[in-house]
């Protein structure tokens, strides 16, 4: 999956997420939260609050035990 141009930054693989919230407590911009929807594994998965605010710092990727996050950046 490739995010749309001008909409960079973060791809969340919702089926891989286990809703542990490690990324939520780590994001310096408080820009991630647990969503209402449930994935096939039965976990609430995370969603981004405001895509514009994400700066692709990758800290959420660093703490994710399930490699459920991918980060993109402008060249």
């Amino acid at each position: 999956m490739k995010p749309k141009e001008s909409m960079p930054k973060i791809v969340i693989y919702e089926q891989k997420c286990k809703g542990c919230e490690l990324c939520v407590i780590t994001c310096p911009k408080k820009n991630l939260r647990l969503g209402q929807k449930i994935n096939k594994k039965g976990y609430h998965y995370i969603e981004i609050v405001d895509l514009e605010k994400c700066n692709s710092c990758g800290l959420c990727y660093q703490v994710c035990p399930d490699v459920a996050i991918e980060i993109w950046k402008d060249k």
Binding site: E5, E21, Y43, Q62, V67, E70, W72
Partner: peptide, 23 residues
């Protein structure tokens, strides 16, 4: 746009069976 952090090649696509947050 360029991927800067993503699943390493040395991992498969299989989802772990570990508990949420497990080290």
């Amino acid at each position: 746009m360029k991927k800067v952090y993503c699943k390493p090649e040395s991992m498969t696509d299989i989802e772990h069976k570990y508990c949420p947050g497990c080290g």
